[in-house]
């Protein structure tokens, strides 16, 4: 049945108000941001919240700024803003790469960064992007706030570190010199969920990679940041052999399932191939070879 179960609805007036409502209403309450994941789940009765707390009026969560050596992005920032932001394009072109292949304009006008991360779908592109960029998540409650690294943010499929009385308010990405980033995705048609995608970010020190990260999407849980990949990249000089080797590490460290998007063999191959490509482009960008 394409109709949600009955629910109560409140429109939050501030972050504090939203968190207070959430604390009072408890685990049966859900924040609704863009609604492009939650509403379909409610219509399919996969989610049956008793209360929806609408946070679309919280303009204090709509921002992309450079501050204290970080790029800070409000949780309610829409996909479209991420796509169009010149500040992000300058520092982290991976965002524009990814946003070009996320859904369609109607969804991008409405869906949010915070909503994407909190949905914690293993196929979610922005989770892979944020993991590659070594982002942190600012989580607030009535008693204070805490900063959680992306590697600790997702605790399982559709599960995050955000507690029942907490709210993700901001994503912070460190600004470090000589960085490059890129995103590669294979999808079954334009704007679809990934069959596999790979996001890569590197930070160069002269001719070697000082640090690098790869986040994969749609190849199983906990693939948004792969430790052995970073181990292999650190201190290495970029080369086609390195991209191939790291691609193979990425493929070996993911655990896709055979489903209608593809077989395990195909997905592992894509994890390798797309990691190779995203690394190659990330390094090229870090070296100023590609805008």
């Amino acid at each position: 049945m394409q109709v949600p179960a009955p629910f109560e609805y409140e429109r939050a007036t501030s972050v504090e108000n939203a968190i207070a409502l959430r604390e009072r209403l408890g685990e049966e309450a859900r924040f609704i941001a863009g609604g492009h994941s939650l509403l379909p789940m409610m219509k399919l009765r996969l989610a049956n919240p008793e209360y929806l707390i609408d946070i679309n009026d919280l303009t204090e969560l709509f921002f992309i700024t450079e501050e204290a050596g970080e790029i800070r992005i409000g949780a309610m920032t829409r996909h479209r803003e991420l796509l169009e932001s010149e500040l992000l394009a300058e520092h982290f072109p991976i965002f524009r790469d990814a946003e070009k292949v996320i859904a369609d304009p109607v969804v991008r006008n409405r869906g949010t960064l915070g909503g994407s991360l909190c949905q914690a779908d293993p196929s979610e592109d922005l989770s892979a992007v944020c993991a590659a960029l070594d982002a942190s998540c600012l989580i607030k409650s009535t008693t204070g706030e805490r900063l959680v690294a992306m590697t600790d943010f997702h605790v399982g499929p559709y599960e995050t570190a955000v507690g029942d009385a907490e709210m993700l308010t901001e994503i912070r990405i460190p600004l470090k010199a000589n960085s490059g980033s890129a995103y590669e995705k294979v999808e079954r048609r334009a704007g679809d969920w990934a069959v596999v995608s790979s996001g890569a970010a590197v930070w160069m020190d002269g001719d070697v990679i000082a640090d690098g990260r790869v986040g994969l999407a749609a190849v199983g849980p906990n693939t948004t940041s792969i430790g052995p990949v970073s181990d292999a990249l650190r201190g290495a000089a970029p080369s086609e052999e390195l991209y191939q080797q790291v691609g193979e590490i990425a493929a070996a460290n993911c655990s896709p399932q055979t489903d209608q998007r593809g077989s395990v063999a195909y997905k592992k191959h894509l994890a390798m191939e797309l990691t190779r490509r995203s690394l190659r482009r990330a390094v090229a960008r870090a070296q100023g070879q590609e805008a």
Partner: peptide, 24 residues
């Protein structure tokens, strides 16, 4: 259409049966 071994359609939904869209 994809079938399972018992002859049931596995992708009887627009999420898994991929129509082309304007962007394609």
């Amino acid at each position: 259409t994809q079938y399972d071994e018992r002859g049931a359609q596995r992708n009887a939904a627009l999420l898994e049966y991929k129509l082309q869209t304007a962007a394609d």
